[in-house]
Design a protein around this nucleic acid. Sequence first.
DNA 1: GTAGTGACGGAGA
DNA 2: TTCTCCGCCACTA
Length: 112
Amino acid sequence: MKESINFFEKVYEVAAQIPFGRVTSYGAIATYLGAARSARMVGWAMNASHNNNDIPAHRVVNRKGLLTGKHHFDGTNLMQQLLESEGVIIKENQIQNFETVFWDPSKELPIL
DNA sequence: GTAGTGACGGAGA
DNA sequence: TTCTCCGCCACTA
């Protein structure tokens, strides 16, 4: 076990605070954490979030609102199904009204 | 030690 | 808007 990278826990913390029926992007989280150029790390952290049940990874999509991470879920439509259950409309793996359901941590959460 | 890859994002065309 | 290229950090072979 290495020293726990705060980056991971921060990502989890932010993701866990995503309100019901809202979504955010990897870049938004990365920017909030001060790693705007490391959005990939956020996605990578999400990959490890499988061990954290409190991490609604299905609420995290790319900046286009595309469910790029759905392949990492058990089913093929599990991610979409979860989001639709929260009132998020999805079509062709892309979130509709993305601007409406988008949740920006850098705006909603206190500045780091 | 080097190269390839990835749940991404931004800039340029 | 989409496509391509580059950069970013961490992991794997």
